[in-house]
Nucleic acid binder design. Structure first.
Length: 298
DNA sequence: TCGGCCCTGGGG
DNA sequence: CCCCAGGGCCGA
């Protein structure tokens, strides 16, 4: 569920609410998350102060500082499909599927809940371990300010579909199913196009589209399809701005053609059949191919 | 490089 | 009842 804009929104919401606060106690639920929280971490986290919180791809990192031990441990979180990380008044009744509670000041709590349990919260001794974690993960660069040459090579150097490339966190970190479709739509490229079929200009346009759609989605505080809420419990608003995602059968906002949906990389992939043709028509070679195909059909 | 799987809940 | 869902990982 939560992709880069949603995770960024959570981080921005939580920052003023929790940075500088001391974690008085830690409680955890009985159910195992994808990477299980370990009880031995409780005493390592209790008593520390939250020094900062940041996003990396779809991951969050919480910087802790432990006064007398002079250590700077970290929490790495992932929201999976249905994860929520919120700062609330502890007087609020505990919801279902609550997995970790960090007790702060004056009854305030940082809560991690996740019905489907695809998410995780893990403890790491220091910043070096965080870097090693992302390194081992093969996590790719952030999508903002991407090197154009890098992106052209990453896309045009593969026979995979654009959908598969955009979902690959090693290529670009943070894009998921919604924003992959939206970026392809904005760039006028069919998600089933093979990376190697793109011209350098196509790749540049796609790179720009990724930045544009993610930036706009952050401004709207992310997209709420179902479970997602920001760090203060508010829903997102970008779902009302979707060009193609979840709009199967609805008219394309640009040309009126019905939005279509196919399965790519195991995910529903939405596109406008008219604005996002399967193969390019720009080059002479492509025009010849198109003509031949049409003659063949006749 | 793909499909299956990990989970729970909601909708048709 | 079935199918679907914003993610990632693992093995054929």
């Amino acid at each position: 569920m939560p992709e880069l804009p949603e995770v960024e929104t959570v981080v921005r919401d939580l920052r003023p609410l929790v940075v500088g606060r001391t974690i008085r106690a830690v409680r955890h639920g009985p159910k195992k998350l994808r990477k299980p929280w370990q009880a031995k971490w409780n005493p390592l986290v209790a008593g520390t102060r939250i020094e900062g919180i940041r996003r990396r791809g779809k991951w969050m990192v919480v910087n802790l500082i432990s006064g007398r031990a002079v250590s700077a441990p970290r929490l790495i979180l992932h929201l999976g499909m249905t994860g929520q990380f919120t700062a609330v008044d502890g007087a609020h009744p505990a919801p279902d599927h609550l997995h970790l509670v960090l007790e702060l000041h004056q009854g305030r709590e940082l809560r991690f809940r996740d019905p489907r349990r695809f998410g995780s919260v893990t403890f790491h001794a220091d910043e070096a371990e965080v870097e090693a974690f992302f390194e081992q993960n093969g996590l790719g660069p952030e999508p903002f300010g991407l090197d154009p040459a890098y992106f052209r090579q990453a896309v045009r150097g593969t026979s995979r579909t654009l959908k598969a490339v955009l979902l690959d966190q090693r290529v670009v970190a943070g894009v998921g199913n919604i924003y992959a479709d939206e970026a392809c739509s904005l760039a006028g490229l069919h998600p089933q196009r093979r990376g190697k079929s793109l011209t350098p200009a196509d790749a540049d346009r796609l790179r720009g589209a990724i930045e544009t759609v993610l930036t706009k989605a952050i401004e709207y505080r992310g997209s709420t399809i179902r479970d997602y809420v920001g760090g203060s419990g508010l829903r997102g608003g970008f779902q009302n701005e979707f060009r193609v995602y979840g709009r199967t059968g609805d008219p394309c906002r640009a040309c009126g053609t019905a939005i279509a949906c196919v399965r790519l990389s195991g995910r529903s992939s939405h596109f406008c059949p008219s604005c996002q043709p399967t193969h390019h028509k720009g080059t002479k070679a492509a025009q010849r191919t198109t003509k031949k195909t049409q003659e063949g059909i006749r």
